[in-house]
Amino acid sequence: MADKEHLAMLIQGADKWNEWRQMMDESEELCDDFYEVNLSGADLSNVNLSGFDLSRTDLSGANLSDAGLVEVDFSYSALCKADLSNSRCQGCNFNEADLEEANFSKANLTYANFNGTNLISVNFRQSRLWESDLSSANLSNTDFSESTLVGSNLRGIQSNGAVFYKAILGSANLSGSEFTGANFSEADLSRANMSGTDFAKANFVNANLYRVEALESSFISANFTGACLKDWHIDAATQLDDAICEYFYWGLDQQNRCPQNGIYKQGELAELFKRARNLVESLLQKGL
């Protein structure tokens, strides 16, 4: 349980708390436990709570902007509508926390754990999520615009209408997930694993899909206009029915436009790759 003296000092604000914490750290008398405390609506902006146990704590509506929260345990806590913008949350554990409508814009969330977390309508705009774990989280209407998710785990995601506009998802794992209606326009998905995932009606306009793996995935009615499809890996089970693609690029940096002139009609992308696959199979059968 939280120490009453520590709690009383915390609610006095960042200046007094941070000065007092430094003194307590030096004396090794700091109790780093705010387990099950009610801090809903509290102003904790700029506070240094790095290393604390805030599991099962009520922080709904709290202001944690610009806070130092490195390796804090937020598991099973309530942080709905909390403001964690520009906070330092490297290595934080948000396992099974409720973060609906929280604000993480410009936060550093490198190596953070969001496994099984409610992230509905969360704002992650311009945040850093390098190698974070978002597996099995609910990302419906979540905004990752201009965020960095290189090497992150998004496997088993349930999402409807998530936004990844201009996000960087290089080498991320999006397999076995549902991203129906998601917006990946101008996103960098190079070398990402997108196999076994439902991307029906998703927006990949001007996206970079260089060397992605999309085996057994569904792109029904998705939009690939202007996307880079160089060396992407699909198979006979990849569904491109009714996909929209007026043109795409077979090279990086918008090189090798296909078609060179004019545009494809809706559904032609599926036929194009079907013919290409049949040709390759025919050549293989002939031993060429």
Rank of each mutant, 00 (worst) to 15 (best):
L7V: 07
A8Y: 07
L10A: 05
G13L: 02
M23K: 15
D25L: 14
E29L: 09
D33E: 10
D43L: 00
N46Y: 01
N48H: 01
S50N: 00
D53P: 01
L69K: 04
Y76G: 01
A78S: 08
N93V: 10
E96G: 02
E100G: 10
F104N: 15
A107Y: 00
A107K: 12
N108Q: 07
T117L: 08
N118W: 05
I120A: 04
S127Y: 02
R128Y: 08
D133A: 03
A137W: 06
T142I: 03
T142E: 06
S152D: 04
S152K: 08
I157T: 13
N160I: 13
F164H: 13
Y165D: 05
Y165K: 14
L169Y: 12
A172F: 08
E178W: 05
F184W: 12
D188Y: 12
S190I: 00
A192T: 13
D198S: 14
N203A: 08
F204E: 11
Y210M: 00
R211I: 06
E213S: 14
A214N: 10
F219I: 14
I220S: 02
N223Q: 04
T225S: 11
C228K: 04
C228P: 02
I234S: 09
Y247F: 13
N256W: 09
Q260L: 09
G262L: 00
E271T: 15
F273W: 15
F273H: 14
R277I: 14
E281N: 14
L284D: 15
Q285A: 12
L288V: 15
